[in-house]
Structure formats: structure tokens, C-alpha cells
Design a protein around this nucleic acid. Structure first.
Lengths: 165, 165
DNA sequence: AATTTATGTCAGTCTTGTTGACTTTCCAAG
DNA sequence: CTTGGAAAGTCAACAAGACTGACATAAATT
């Protein structure tokens, strides 16, 4: 009876503050695990997580402009510039002047950039693949749906859609 | 046919690299959204995300020792100490010398500590509650299952279990 | 021609991580 | 009982990576 009143007749037990707080902690611990593999690999280089993020998104969206990277990464241009400068100097990233608009710089991974990307990505994919496999396809669907809802709506367009077969 | 071979006869399309890379991006964007509300609130204080984390876990586990906080947060004691010192100086956290072992310090939120916790937590819970509500209970179950699998197994014990009614 | 846009750079600050050295307290082996 | 090591916590100095602000250059737009 008390429950019915609180829940408005529906089963909304998954929305209690306790459940939400547990969700907050799950996200915290999971995200730390999720970043730990690449972080460990990057210790052998002079790079950090910021470089990883840049490399990931350049890989997934070859040819994006600096400006759109700023949008995606949500950092200042000064911050991104420091990272890009190093990656370009070290020959992992190539910056090509735009053909249509010559103010723009379009970013690409070089061969060795792709190699590092692959090393970082495969560690992270391995962790996710195991997690997905153990949870099963339905759980993964729910996982994705909740994450989509958590992010700022303006960011949803940046999640690269899957290629239809 | 080609699919059957690749998938070993099962429907494992949710384990393709494309799906995994999409999951990586979802986690990235969702986590940023998830931390943005507290970050915005904390701009009005002299605190940052590290303080938020300390406050959250002290709230959830009143009386924990500094050492167990180190385990949970995964930072060095020097790093945590700086944060705790500020919070104690400002009267948000109380540190009590252990009765059994006088080397230990047990941590508690004061009244104003609880107030800040509540402000930060309610913003984050609100975002998560909306996300949960729109996704539905089954999706939330999957969300939690995948997150549990992603985190390092040694961290699972730190996710506070829900109180059974 | 003037303005706006895209990018890059220099300088300085802040948060939050790190390592190294130190003190206090506890406990156990001689 | 003493002594030596381990554990808990503190202080100091440093580094990565975010930030703001000011300014420069080139190209596109009005």
C-alpha cells in the first residue's frame, strides 16, 4: 500500500535514490577500469589520455577539422593544440590544409599513428567485448540506451552511427 | 552463410568492432555528461572533482578510514590528503582518531558537508533518474550488468550493495 | 575595405595527479 | 622491555593537462 502510493501504481523501484547512487558508483568504477588499459600502455610513451582521445576520434573520423574536434572533445583550442602539435611533430598525425576552405586543417592518422591507435583500441575493445559477451545482447542494448540518455543531447550526434550491413 | 561462419552460428553481431567502438564513444560522452552537473556546481566553490568524489564516498560509507578511501579512489595518499585537509579545514569533513588503532583516522561528513553532498548528488541523481526512466527497468538492468563487467573485478566489492526491503 | 572565421601561439594559473622524505603509532621478535 | 619494522598520515616539490586572456595570421564573407 505504501509502495503503491509512492510508486503511483507502477513498479518504479529501479528509480529509488539508493539505486541511483549505486548507478553513480558503477559508472565511476567502470569508467576507471575502461581507461586503465590505455593509460597503462601510454606510460611507455610521452603521451597521456588527452592524446589517446585525439587519436581515437581522428581515427574514427579521418579528415575532421580542428574545430569539430574541439566540439567533440569539449576542450579549449589551446589544450587541443598542445596535444596535436606533439602528435604531428612525432609523425602520428598529419594535418592537411582544406581544399575548399584553406583556413581549415583536416586531420589524419599516419601509418604509425594507426599503429598506436590499434594498440590502444584493441586493449579497450577487448575489455568491452568480454563485458558484452558475459552480459549478453539484451543487456548491451540497455547499456547503450541508458548511456545515450545520460549524455547531453547535443552530444548524441557525435556518436558515430553503425554501418548498416 | 558468410555471417554464419563468422559468428559461429550464433547472433554475435553485437560484438563487432564497430559496435565496440561505438560503445567506447558512448561511455566517453555519457561520462562527460554525468560529471558536468557537479563540475558546474563546484565552480562556485574552491573545490573540484576530487573533492566531490571524497564527499560522495564519505557520505556513503561514514566512518571509513583514509586507507580504505585510498583503495576506493585509486589515488595516492598524498593526493587524497590534500583534498581531505581542505575539506576538514573548511568544516565539511570530520576526522576522528581510531579508538582501537590510534593511527587510523575515521571520516565523517559534518552538517555542512552533508548539505554540499546533497546539492551535488541531487543534480547527478536527477540526470540518472531521467535517463533510467526513459530507458525503462530492463535497460537499466542491462546497463548495470555491463558496467559491473567492465570494471576491474577487484573493485566490485566497493560498489555499495542495495538494501533489501 | 572591413569584418568574421579558423587556426595557431605565448604566458600564466589551477586542479589533481605523482614521488620522496618525514613523524607518529602500533606490534611483534628478540 | 626494548627495538626495529610496518602502517597511517603529513609536508614539500613537481608534472600533466585542463583553463583564461591576449595576440597573430590567413582566408573567407559581407
Amino acid at each position: 500500500m505504501r509502495d503503491r502510493l509512492q510508486q503511483g501504481g507502477e513498479n518504479l523501484l529501479f528509480l529509488t535514490d539508493d539505486q541511483l547512487l549505486q548507478g553513480i558508483e558503477l559508472l565511476f568504477f567502470a569508467y576507471r577500469g575502461f581507461t586503465s588499459d590505455p593509460d597503462r600502455i601510454l606510460e611507455n610513451y610521452t603521451y597521456g589520455r588527452a592524446h589517446h582521445r585525439a587519436i581515437h576520434f581522428i581515427h574514427r573520423r579521418p579528415g575532421t577539422s580542428v574545430n569539430s574536434m574541439l566540439d567533440i572533445l569539449g576542450v579549449t583550442k589551446q589544450s587541443l593544440n598542445r596535444v596535436l602539435r606533439q602528435l604531428i611533430e612525432d609523425g602520428l598525425v598529419e594535418s592537411k590544409i582544406g581544399e575548399k576552405d584553406r583556413r581549415e586543417r583536416h586531420l589524419f592518422l599516419t601509418k604509425s599513428g594507426k599503429e598506436l591507435e590499434s594498440e590502444l583500441s584493441s586493449a579497450q575493445r577487448k575489455r568491452l567485448r568480454t563485458a558484452y559477451k558475459e552480459a549478453g545482447p539484451d543487456a548491451v542494448l540497455g547499456f547503450r540506451k541508458v548511456l545515450e540518455n545520460i549524455m547531453d543531447p547535443s552530444m548524441r550526434k557525435h556518436v558515430k552511427k553503425l554501418v548498416k550491413d
